[in-house]
Design a protein around this nucleic acid. Structure first.
Lengths: 212, 212
DNA sequence: TATTGTATCCAACAGTATGTTATTTATGCA
DNA sequence: TGCATAAATAACATACTGTTGGATACAATA
């Protein structure tokens, strides 16, 4: 069992200095998974499918990943790193820009770039673990914002409930966007989302979102 | 291929007058699926698992269902019928009751009854199709409510977007409830949910929800 | 450029789940 | 009680999985 490490070690994805062959193989495999998922849904994709499409021997797949879930998992890690780094970079640039929360806009732009993939993965032919992780990320982005609104209404809903409410609501907005082929710009959607969130749970999305 | 019919024909689930053996077998199979799903997640459950647990021969399974997805599908149909019928019955009884929307309370009480199952199915080890269908049901329940609020604000978010927002938000509330082992009553949760929905997208959940 | 470590390919393997079929057994129903 | 049919049984080809040992190709160094 070669690829066991990937489950244990939360290895820094320093794929940069790695063997060219390794990077190429991994790239082919994840691209194949994405394409196949869009075509026939995540559940229907087999390891054999992936390796055939990627033109990589099947045994090579198992050298890198435990199974297709592991492949997706590692990909999500990489994307997460990428996104949070982007947010950080943009943060300074955009501080004085418009009112639309830049971190959110960046996230939406990334999603737009892989719209087909996200549309499938968050839909009926996607993966429940992916959805769950997406939800958790959403919750984390909102968490620190909600802490600042001290609700003094005694019979108001609990903080964690409102957090779950607004996080899932945000996913609902993104789903609407994806399922309707992004009928508006990322900036516009970010505005609407922050408007709705503000009125619903009483928070204001800041111009720049936190890294975590 | 025996069970193909179930995919085509949206047969009225008049399982009442059916052969005792059939009803018993179907009951054992769905109960096995539910128990196994709670134990090890939906994806990990095999047809062999189900039939073994249900003490039914594997070939018998295929006489009734195409696969485990079909089994779940048909079960969801039955539950749906049950719920909407309950809502209809309760509608008259509860019209003059409290302010909490009775249809919503009934739904929540049903979910509470199978809390373990719903917690798993809507979580990371659930089924994306189940989640999607749950979302659609939620959307349908809200749809007619939102039509009554004619937003005259020109740059407000589209109706369908708000619908998706509030539907997913409702699921978020239910998820919080399930993941925290229902720390409050169904009535209390219904109140909070309708409060949040009212302030967020400007609608009021009526005392009785529509059947469809 | 030559060397070398290692990533990839190749072929083969047992194990497991699937979906289907033909036949026999049993059991609910009228 | 007899009949219709549901369920059990056994067998089958097919497909995917996860793993292995050895041959081959090649990227990264010196």
């Amino acid at each position: 069992m070669y690829a066991t490490e990937s489950k244990k070690v939360t290895q820094k994805s320093d794929r940069a200095g790695e063997d060219l062959r390794v990077r190429r193989t991994r790239k082919m495999l994840i691209e194949a998974l994405i394409a196949l998922t869009v075509e026939k849904g995540y559940a229907a994709v087999t390891v054999s499918d992936i390796t055939e499409r990627a033109m990589v021997n099947r045994s090579t797949f198992y050298r890198h990943f435990l199974d297709k879930f592991d492949l997706l998992d590692q990909y999500m890690d990489e994307v997460n790193d990428l996104i949070s780094r982007e947010e950080f970079v943009e943060e300074k640039v955009a501080r004085h820009k418009e009112f639309a929360p830049q971190g959110l806009v960046n996230l939406l732009k990334h999603i737009q770039q892989f719209a087909d993939f996200y549309r499938v993965m968050l839909g009926p032919h996607g993966d429940p673990t992916f959805i769950h992780r997406f939800r958790q990320n959403s919750e984390n982005r909102f968490r620190y914002l909600l802490e600042y609104v001290g609700s003094n209404d005694p019979n108001a809903s609990p903080l964690e409930l409102r957090l779950s409410y607004v996080s899932c609501a945000g996913i609902g907005v993104i789903l609407w966007w994806l399922e309707n082929n992004q009928p508006c710009t990322a900036e516009q959607l970010a505005m609407w989302m922050s408007q709705l969130s503000t009125t619903s749970v009483g928070l204001t999305i800041m111009p720049s979102l936190p890294k975590r």
